[in-house]
Amino acid sequence: MLKIEGLTAEIDGKQILKGIDLEVPTGEIHAIMGPNGSGKSTLSYVLAGREGYEITGGTATFNGLDLLSMEPEERAAAGVFLAFQYPVELPGVGNANFLRTALNAIRRSKGEPEVDAMQFLKLARARMKELSMPEDMLKRGVNVGFSGGEKKRNEVLQMALLQPGLAILDETDSGLDIDALKIAADGVNAMRGPNFSSLVITHYQRLLNYIVPDRVHVLMNGRIVQSGGPELAKQLEESGYTAVQAA
């Protein structure tokens, strides 16, 4: 389970997270909603270990491991996966090569045997079919020349291959049309199970029609100001964030 207590963080001297308390028990999917600039992406980057953020207080543990003291790759090995809001392009690096290198890095750290190129292709093809991804996406450079929707689907593919224990989805719905949104949601729903938890960060309620969360939290101005069941997302959609602010 993911447990965050009193987490504060700043960037360039500006405080963004002002004391986050959050628990995501194993097996649950929680949504974090909030207006632009509320600290949603910062929270995801801080949990994944991106440089440039200064943690000024609080703790974050995953299955008892102190995430904040670990390198990004150690967090990945521990099962933390971040689906990027803006997936990064790696020119010249073949998508298949990248995915296999990542998969084997994770497998190595778990003490599992590495997969060879043939085994990997078999695995990847099966997953890609589920995600309706054309097979030539394996041959192209990582995210190079991918449409917005293809990039997001590539993130979901990576998640499906790496089988993380905690998936943080940072606005995975942005830039997706309704069909792509359904496919991405199916990818997450397929992961649901007693050993999987997820933090779905989104601006809109739309995604939560397809990934129904166990809990919804509203993040505003660096703090979680309200928590509730899936119905909270619908309320927000109708009344807007300003209503929460006023309350």
Binding site: A48, G49, R50, E51, E71, P72, E73, R75, A76, A77, F81, L82, F84, P87, V88, L90, F98, T101, A102, A105, I106, S109, Q158, L162
Partner: peptide, 8 residues
């Protein structure tokens, strides 16, 4: 960061 987040 992208690569490291994937375990490299």
């Amino acid at each position: 960061f992208y690569c490291r987040q994937r375990g490299l």
